[in-house]
Protein backbone atom coordinates (compact mmCIF):
# COMPACT_ATOMS: atom_id res chain seq x y z
CA UNK A 1 0.00 0.00 0.00
CA UNK A 2 2.79 2.33 0.86
CA UNK A 3 4.37 1.55 -2.49
CA UNK A 4 1.43 3.15 -4.15
CA UNK A 5 2.15 6.38 -2.36
CA UNK A 6 5.84 6.07 -3.11
CA UNK A 7 4.93 5.95 -6.76
CA UNK A 8 3.33 9.34 -6.49
CA UNK A 9 6.40 10.76 -4.87
CA UNK A 10 8.51 9.44 -7.75
CA UNK A 11 6.34 11.19 -10.29
CA UNK A 12 6.36 14.39 -8.26
CA UNK A 13 10.12 14.28 -7.98
CA UNK A 14 10.40 14.00 -11.73
CA UNK A 15 8.26 17.06 -12.12
CA UNK A 16 11.12 19.16 -10.80
CA UNK A 17 13.89 17.59 -12.83
CA UNK A 18 15.17 19.08 -16.01
CA UNK A 19 13.55 17.49 -19.07
CA UNK A 20 15.89 15.38 -21.14
CA UNK A 21 14.27 16.27 -24.45
CA UNK A 22 16.77 17.14 -27.17
CA UNK A 23 15.01 19.67 -29.31
CA UNK A 24 15.48 18.91 -32.96
CA UNK A 25 16.15 20.80 -35.26
CA UNK A 26 17.74 23.41 -33.02
CA UNK A 27 19.94 20.74 -31.55
CA UNK A 28 21.23 18.03 -33.89
CA UNK A 29 22.59 15.07 -32.11
CA UNK A 30 25.86 13.89 -33.65
CA UNK A 31 25.66 10.42 -35.14
CA UNK A 32 28.34 7.77 -34.95
CA UNK A 33 30.81 7.77 -37.83
CA UNK A 34 29.50 4.52 -39.32
CA UNK A 35 25.90 5.69 -39.29
CA UNK A 36 24.29 4.60 -42.54
CA UNK A 37 22.63 7.53 -44.19
CA UNK A 38 22.56 8.95 -47.66
CA UNK A 39 24.67 7.24 -50.30
CA UNK A 40 27.64 8.82 -51.89
CA UNK A 41 29.39 7.83 -55.12
CA UNK A 42 33.11 8.48 -55.07
CA UNK A 43 35.77 9.46 -57.53
CA UNK A 44 39.46 8.75 -57.72
CA UNK A 45 41.87 11.59 -57.12
CA UNK A 46 42.26 12.14 -60.85
CA UNK A 47 38.56 12.75 -61.25
CA UNK A 48 37.57 9.41 -62.79
CA UNK A 49 34.55 7.80 -61.22
CA UNK A 50 35.23 4.69 -59.22
CA UNK A 51 31.92 3.10 -60.22
CA UNK A 52 32.26 0.79 -63.25
CA UNK A 53 28.59 -0.11 -63.45
CA UNK A 54 29.07 -3.74 -62.44
CA UNK A 55 25.65 -3.80 -60.77
CA UNK A 56 26.80 -5.86 -57.78
CA UNK A 57 25.19 -3.28 -55.50
CA UNK A 58 21.90 -3.82 -57.33
CA UNK A 59 22.30 -7.57 -56.90
CA UNK A 60 23.02 -7.26 -53.19
CA UNK A 61 20.24 -4.80 -52.49
CA UNK A 62 17.49 -6.52 -50.50
CA UNK A 63 14.98 -3.82 -51.39
CA UNK A 64 15.82 -3.92 -55.13
CA UNK A 65 16.05 -0.16 -55.31
CA UNK A 66 19.20 0.36 -57.40
CA UNK A 67 19.10 0.58 -61.15
CA UNK A 68 22.35 0.37 -63.08
CA UNK A 69 22.62 0.60 -66.84
CA UNK A 70 26.25 0.32 -67.90
CA UNK A 71 27.88 1.54 -71.09
CA UNK A 72 31.24 1.52 -72.80
CA UNK A 73 33.58 4.30 -71.76
CA UNK A 74 33.71 6.82 -74.60
CA UNK A 75 37.10 7.15 -76.21
CA UNK A 76 37.10 10.90 -75.70
CA UNK A 77 36.12 11.83 -72.20
CA UNK A 78 36.55 8.61 -70.28
CA UNK A 79 34.20 8.54 -67.32
CA UNK A 80 35.36 5.69 -65.12
CA UNK A 81 38.60 3.95 -64.42
CA UNK A 82 37.52 0.59 -65.83
CA UNK A 83 36.27 -0.92 -69.06
CA UNK A 84 32.77 0.36 -68.49
CA UNK A 85 30.93 3.00 -66.56
CA UNK A 86 27.46 3.42 -65.15
CA UNK A 87 25.53 5.42 -67.71
CA UNK A 88 22.45 5.36 -65.54
CA UNK A 89 22.76 4.93 -61.79
CA UNK A 90 19.64 5.49 -59.78
CA UNK A 91 18.75 4.71 -56.20
CA UNK A 92 15.15 4.94 -55.12
CA UNK A 93 15.49 6.40 -51.63
CA UNK A 94 11.86 5.63 -50.88
CA UNK A 95 12.62 1.92 -51.16
CA UNK A 96 16.09 1.97 -49.68
CA UNK A 97 16.31 0.47 -46.21
CA UNK A 98 19.82 1.86 -45.61
CA UNK A 99 21.21 -1.53 -44.77
CA UNK A 100 24.60 -0.86 -46.33
CA UNK A 101 24.75 -4.08 -48.36
CA UNK A 102 25.55 -2.09 -51.48
CA UNK A 103 28.54 -0.60 -49.71
CA UNK A 104 29.67 -4.07 -48.69
CA UNK A 105 29.16 -5.50 -52.16
CA UNK A 106 30.99 -2.84 -54.12
CA UNK A 107 34.39 -4.12 -55.22
CA UNK A 108 35.75 -0.66 -55.88
CA UNK A 109 34.59 1.23 -52.79
CA UNK A 110 32.64 3.38 -55.18
CA UNK A 111 29.52 3.68 -53.07
CA UNK A 112 29.47 4.35 -49.38
CA UNK A 113 26.76 5.44 -47.02
CA UNK A 114 27.34 8.80 -45.42
CA UNK A 115 25.76 10.28 -42.36
CA UNK A 116 23.03 12.40 -43.84
CA UNK A 117 19.53 11.20 -43.02
CA UNK A 118 17.47 14.32 -43.58
CA UNK A 119 16.11 13.36 -46.96
CA UNK A 120 12.46 14.44 -46.95
CA UNK A 121 10.92 15.48 -50.23
CA UNK A 122 7.43 16.49 -51.17
CA UNK A 123 7.10 14.22 -54.17
CA UNK A 124 8.01 10.57 -54.66
CA UNK A 125 9.78 11.27 -57.94
CA UNK A 126 12.20 13.55 -56.19
CA UNK A 127 13.25 10.61 -54.05
CA UNK A 128 14.76 8.73 -56.99
CA UNK A 129 18.35 9.90 -56.78
CA UNK A 130 20.22 9.99 -60.06
CA UNK A 131 23.93 9.55 -60.54
CA UNK A 132 24.60 13.28 -60.56
CA UNK A 133 22.84 13.71 -57.27
CA UNK A 134 24.77 10.85 -55.74
CA UNK A 135 28.11 12.03 -57.09
CA UNK A 136 27.66 15.56 -55.89
CA UNK A 137 29.09 16.54 -52.59
CA UNK A 138 26.29 16.22 -50.07
CA UNK A 139 25.19 19.05 -47.87
CA UNK A 140 26.62 17.71 -44.66
CA UNK A 141 23.94 18.71 -42.28
CA UNK A 142 24.22 15.85 -39.85
CA UNK A 143 27.06 16.25 -37.38
CA UNK A 144 28.97 13.09 -36.54
CA UNK A 145 31.03 12.05 -33.63
CA UNK A 146 34.76 11.89 -33.83
CA UNK A 147 36.18 9.10 -35.87
CA UNK A 148 39.14 8.58 -33.56
CA UNK A 149 36.86 8.02 -30.64
CA UNK A 150 34.24 5.79 -32.21
CA UNK A 151 35.57 4.18 -35.36
CA UNK A 152 38.18 1.71 -34.23
CA UNK A 153 41.08 1.56 -36.68
CA UNK A 154 41.95 -1.70 -38.37
CA UNK A 155 45.25 -2.09 -36.51
CA UNK A 156 43.46 -1.91 -33.22
CA UNK A 157 40.99 -4.60 -34.30
CA UNK A 158 43.82 -6.79 -35.36
CA UNK A 159 45.52 -6.29 -32.05
CA UNK A 160 42.34 -7.25 -30.27
CA UNK A 161 41.80 -10.25 -32.48
CA UNK A 162 45.42 -11.22 -32.06
CA UNK A 163 44.80 -11.65 -28.41
CA UNK A 164 42.26 -14.28 -29.31
CA UNK A 165 45.06 -16.78 -29.85
CA UNK A 166 46.41 -16.06 -26.38
CA UNK A 167 42.97 -16.54 -24.89
CA UNK A 168 42.32 -19.83 -26.63
CA UNK A 169 45.77 -21.14 -25.84
CA UNK A 170 45.47 -20.57 -22.11
CA UNK A 171 41.82 -21.54 -21.80
CA UNK A 172 40.72 -23.84 -24.58
CA UNK A 173 37.42 -24.81 -23.04
CA UNK A 174 36.46 -21.31 -22.14
CA UNK A 175 37.12 -19.79 -25.55
CA UNK A 176 33.88 -19.23 -27.45
CA UNK A 177 33.43 -20.90 -30.84
Amino acid sequence: MLDQVKGFSVTLRHLFRKPVTQEYPEYRRPVYPRFRGRHQLHRHENGLEKCVGCSLCAAACPADCIRVVPAENPVEGRVSAGERYARIYEINMARCIFCGYCELACPFDAITLGNDFELSEISRDALVYTKDMLLAKPERRTPSKSVELYDVPVQEMERVLGMYDVITATNPEGAPE
Partner: peptide, 10 residues
Protein backbone atom coordinates in the same frame (compact mmCIF):
# COMPACT_ATOMS: atom_id res chain seq x y z
CA UNK B 1 40.11 -9.71 -61.97
CA UNK B 2 37.45 -8.68 -64.45
CA UNK B 3 34.32 -10.11 -62.86
CA UNK B 4 32.72 -6.74 -62.12
CA UNK B 5 33.18 -5.55 -65.70
CA UNK B 6 32.78 -8.89 -67.50
CA UNK B 7 29.43 -9.65 -69.08
CA UNK B 8 29.74 -13.32 -68.17
CA UNK B 9 29.65 -12.51 -64.47
CA UNK B 10 26.71 -14.20 -62.86
Amino acid sequence: LDCPVCDKGG
